[in-house]
Nucleic acid binder design. Structure first.
Length: 103
DNA sequence: CTATTGACGACAT
DNA sequence: CATGTCGCCAATA
């Protein structure tokens, strides 16, 4: 499995997300210097080798939607709820509040 | 090199 | 609010 530099950067950023908070694909793209690569970011997350260890489940869509998860969307929801993040109608409740910005 | 694919985003309808 | 369209980007075939 060849890991590209791009993926490494994405996974590294993921680890900075505090427990109980979330971030968006867009925010990650912005921080990594590729503001329009949100889509590519999502793909990179999916290729993450060591799942729950790298909090790829704390990444959601910019509109509060859940996005997806390699291990099954249910798994993602379970992990988030476990950290105190509530899901309502397929979206993170009050996500703007829990959104983590790398600044 | 080109085509296809996808855990996305912005905007129009 | 729900869908559809189009643009973007990196990985793969």
């Amino acid at each position: 499995m060849r890991r590209t530099e791009f993926e490494i950067k994405v996974w590294a950023a993921l680890k900075k997300i505090p427990r109980g908070r979330v971030t968006t694909y867009k925010e990650l793209a912005r921080i990594l210097g590729r503001p329009k690569a949100a889509r590519a970011i999502g793909n990179a997350c999916g290729r993450n080798p060591d799942a729950p260890e790298t909090p790829c489940h704390r990444v959601i869509k910019s509109d509060g939607g859940l996005g997806g998860y390699s291990g099954g969307i249910n798994k993602k929801i379970a992990l988030l709820k476990k950290e105190g993040v509530k899901i309502l109608k397929g979206k993170v409740e009050n996500f703007k509040n829990k959104l983590y910005k790398f600044i």
